[in-house]
Simulated assay, not measured.
Amino acid sequence: MKKPMITLAALLFSGALTATATAQQPGNPAAPQQNAPQTQTMQTPQNLPDASEFSDTDLDAFIATQKEMAGIQQTYSRKLQASKDEPQKAMKVQQEAQQKMVEAVEENGLELERYNQIVRLAQHDADFRATLQEKL
């Protein structure tokens, strides 16, 4: 019972960081503008994709990415902890972690947007989340 909770935590952690990495990419229309107010909008269920939109290939690639994300999370959590008293170094570590996560997504054959759609749906749809956990 403990493994699915850890897996879910990794899912949510990696999704949040990957979404951040996506938003920070140059030229991304989702990236915050310097003078724009920085408000976040919550995804509502009607804005979410349907689980049937994801192929088995998408889900398998997502699961492979999640397994890599767990290792990235462990490695960079330790590095962040070690640099907690050095804000500049901590920022570089966080950026490096985000880049590694983006690379993991792409190396497993997913586009960042597709990966983020799966994460968002898993956060809001318990049945879909259970399907992903079974694959893990």
Score class of each variant (00 low, 15 high):
A16M: 04
A16S: 10
A16K: 03
L17Q: 11
T18A: 05
A19N: 07
A19W: 05
T20M: 02
T20K: 07
A21T: 00
A21K: 00
T22C: 12
A23H: 05
Q24I: 02
Q24L: 14
Q24K: 11
Q24T: 09
Q25H: 01
Q25L: 12
P26S: 06
G27V: 01
G27W: 00
N28A: 01
N28Y: 00
N28I: 02
P29M: 01
A30Q: 08
A30K: 09
A30D: 01
A31G: 14
A31R: 15
A31L: 10
A31Y: 08
A31M: 11
A31E: 06
Q33H: 04
Q33C: 06
Q33K: 14
Q33Y: 06
N35I: 04
N35M: 04
A36R: 13
A36M: 10
P37Q: 03
P37S: 07
Q38Y: 02
Q38M: 06
T39E: 10
T39S: 10
Q40V: 08
Q40N: 08
Q40I: 12
Q40K: 12
T41R: 14
T41S: 11
T41W: 09
M42A: 14
M42H: 13
Q43R: 15
Q43D: 08
T44V: 13
T44Q: 14
Q46P: 13
Q46E: 15
N47G: 13
L48V: 10
L48D: 05
L48R: 04
